[in-house]
């Protein structure tokens, strides 16, 4: 029992670190623009399909495939930003969200029409058997995901709180109009944040898909949902919150799956999310959410 709990927790943290990275990307967009990009997952999926394409067509190895996936996600993110966010700046945030939902459908249809098979292979980053530490089984590629998530969080935190760009980002997130008064090009800052988020999402997606070694059109929805739920658990728009939310989601899922099976696992997650929303807290509680932008 104790061993199961420990193994589940470790597994949950590993999976959760991918959720955390997805949530970080969401947070970057939501923190700066106060807008939800529902096409976030599907743009990552497009990147992954491009990665799989160079793998199948040109027999490229994992490194090239990883790079293509991230760049593809950024390109798809750029497309979404130009279409759904750039034309509607300073206007109803709902319009951007609904538009991004439409692009989600468009990207998903595109993937299923161009690549009719349900699943395609994706090369593994590290293909070696799991190793054991103190009786706990650990997969090397999951460990890599965890490391990447921690690195991404630190890098993002440093970028936001210690750089000139980060200062402009926080100024824009907090008060667009005043940021403009000071000569900050808020539209450019928004675009860069958006592309950065897409790159982060692309990296997270690539690590997940490489661990699964396959990609399906369902991945877009999966990534949007996991990232969104993790961000909401963490209390919308905070960097540490996104990471904690992601890890929590992973751990709850792992235990739920083990003890109650896959159906109840998801129910458990939604019950937890419901509880968080009802308590209007999130994990970075105590501060009203508007005060917590990035």
């Amino acid at each position: 029992m104790a061993h199961d709990l420990a193994q589940n927790t470790v597994d949950g943290l590993m999976t959760g670190s991918a959720y955390a990275m997805l949530a970080l990307g969401f947070t970057l967009i939501f923190g700066v623009m106060r807008r939800l990009n529902l096409s976030y997952g599907p743009s990552i999926m497009i990147g992954a399909y491009l990665g799989t394409l160079v793998h199948l067509q040109f027999g490229m190895g994992a490194a090239v495939v990883a790079l293509v996936t991230v760049l593809g996600a950024v390109a798809a993110g750029f497309y979404v930003e130009r279409l759904c966010f750039a034309p509607m700046r300073g206007q109803a945030a709902t319009a951007s969200m609904v538009a991004s939902f439409a692009i989600w459908m468009q990207l998903e249809e595109l993937a299923t029409l161009l690549l009719p098979r349900h699943s395609y292979p994706f090369p593994a980053l590290i293909a070696r058997p799991p190793f054991e530490i103190a009786g706990i089984l650990i997969r090397a590629d999951r460990l890599l995901t965890l490391g990447a998530a921690i690195a991404a969080m630190l890098a993002l935190w440093l970028l936001v709180h210690r750089s000139r760009f980060g200062l402009a980002l926080r100024a824009t997130a907090r008060d667009r109009a005043t940021a403009r008064h000071l000569g900050i090009d808020v539209d450019r800052i928004g675009l860069i944040a958006f592309l950065g988020a897409s790159a982060l999402g692309g990296l997270a997606g690539m690590l997940v898909i490489a661990a699964d070694q396959q990609i399906t059109p369902m991945f877009g929805m999966w990534a949007t949902f996991k990232g969104l739920v993790a961000m909401m658990l963490g209390g919308l728009g905070s960097i540490p919150g996104a990471v904690i939310g992601g890890l929590l989601l992973g751990v709850v899922e792992a235990h739920g799956q083990w003890f109650f099976g896959p159906q109840l696992r998801d129910l458990l997650v939604y019950a937890l999310l419901f509880l968080c929303l009802v308590l209007r807290a999130g994990i970075g509680a105590g501060v009203p959410s508007a005060e917590r932008r990035i």
């Binding site: 000139r164 200062l167 926080r170 907090r174 940021a179 000071l182 900050i184 005060e291 932008r293």
Partner: peptide, 12 residues
Amino acid sequence: FPQMSVRENLTA
């Protein structure tokens, strides 16, 4: 910017 320090405001 209320959530930034005095120094950060000046840097901005």
